[in-house]
C-alpha cells in the first residue's frame, strides 16, 4: 500500500493515533506559539497604523483569524461527519465532538472582538447586520451540536446523530459566507479574498497571514489535546490504555 495512504488510514486506529498525538504535540505547540508570538508582535508593534481607523484596526489580527476559523472548523467538522456516516470511523466521531466547543469558542471570540471594534467604528456594540447575525446563528448551531451530544446517552448513537446534524447545518455555511454580497449592509466587504489586488497594505497583510496560520495550528493543538483525552475516555478498558497506564502504576510501587 502507498505509505502516505497507509499513514492516513492509521489515523483512524485509536492505539496508533494516541502515541502519534503524544509525539507530535510538543512540536505543534512550539510552532503554534512561535507563530502566535511573531504574528502578534508584527501586528501590534510593527505594522503601520491605519490612516482612517488608527490603532483600533489592530484587532483584526485576532478578529479575522477567529472569524475565519469559526467557519473552517465547521467545514472540518462536516468532513468528519461524512467519515462517520459513510465509513463509520469512530475516531472521526470523537474529533467532531471535540471540535464543536473549539468552533464555538472561535465564533464567540469573533463576535466579542467584533463588538469591541464596532463600538468606536460604528458607535454601537451590536448592530443587526447580516454578517453579525449569521455568525450568531453559527454560534447557536455549534452549541446545539454539543448539547445534542450531551443529551443522548448512548454515545455511539450520539456521535452519529451529531454527524447528521452537522451535515444538515452545513447548508448554513454558504449563507454566512455569501451574506456579505447578498445583503449590502454595514459590514466591510472581505479584504482578503482578492489576492491579486489586495485592498490591504502588504505590511498589514503579512502579520494577518501569519496569524491566520497560527490560529489554524492553535485549533489543531486544542483538537489534539481534547482527542488525547477522549480516546482514553471512549475505551477505558482497551488493552492499549491499560498498557499505557501500567508502567506508571507499577513504577510507583516500591
Amino acid at each position: 500500500m502507498n505509505p502516505i495512504l497507509k499513514w492516513c488510514y492509521q489515523l483512524a486506529v485509536p492505539h496508533i493515533l494516541y502515541p502519534r498525538i503524544q509525539a507530535w504535540l510538543p512540536w505543534v505547540a512550539l510552532v503554534t506559539f512561535s507563530l502566535l508570538a511573531l504574528g502578534l508582535y508584527l501586528g501590534l508593534a510593527v505594522a503601520p497604523a491605519d490612516y482612517q481607523q488608527g490603532e483600533a484596526f489592530r484587532i483584526i489580527y485576532v478578529h479575522v483569524p477567529a472569524a475565519w476559523l469559526s467557519m473552517a472548523v465547521y467545514v472540518a467538522m462536516a468532513l468528519m461527519a461524512l467519515s462517520v456516516l459513510v465509513w463509520r470511523i469512530q475516531v472521526a466521531e470523537l474529533a467532531l465532538v471535540a471540535s464543536a466547543p473549539i468552533g464555538a469558542a472561535f465564533t464567540l471570540i469573533a463576535l466579542i472582538t467584533g463588538a469591541i471594534w464596532g463600538k468606536p467604528m460604528w458607535g454601537a456594540w451590536w448592530v443587526w447586520d447580516a454578517r453579525l447575525t449569521s455568525e450568531l446563528i453559527l454560534l447557536f448551531i455549534y452549541i446545539g451540536i454539543f448539547v445534542l451530544y450531551d443529551a443522548i446517552e448512548d454515545k455511539r448513537q450520539a456521535g452519529k446523530a451529531v454527524s447528521l446534524m452537522t451535515l444538515v447545518g452545513l447548508v448554513n455555511i454558504p449563507i454566512i459566507h455569501y451574506s456579505v454580497t447578498w445583503w449590502n449592509t454595514l459590514h466591510q466587504p472581505p479584504s482578503l479574498s482578492k489576492f491579486d489586488t489586495p485592498s490591504i497594505h502588504i505590511d498589514m497583510l503579512i502579520p494577518l497571514l501569519i496569524m491566520l496560520l497560527a490560529f489554524k495550528l492553535l485549533y489543531l493543538l486544542m483538537l489534539m489535546l481534547r482527542m488525547r483525552l477522549s480516546l482514553i475516555e471512549r475505551q477505558p478498558q482497551a488493552a492499549w490504555v491499560k498498557a499505557l497506564i501500567k508502567p506508571a502504576t507499577t513504577g510507583d510501587k516500591p
Binding site: 443522548i152 444538515v168 447545518g169
Partner: peptide, 27 residues
C-alpha cells in the same frame, strides 16, 4: 422534522428541539 427525528426518544427535548431547529428556520 429533521430535528424532531433526531430528538425522538430523548426525555427532555422541547428546548433542544428549538435550539436545533430555529437556526434553520431563519432564512
Amino acid at each position: 422534522a429533521i430535528g424532531v427525528a433526531i430528538t425522538t426518544g430523548l426525555k427532555y427535548n422541547s428546548f433542544l428541539l428549538a435550539l436545533l431547529v430555529l437556526p434553520f428556520y431563519v432564512p
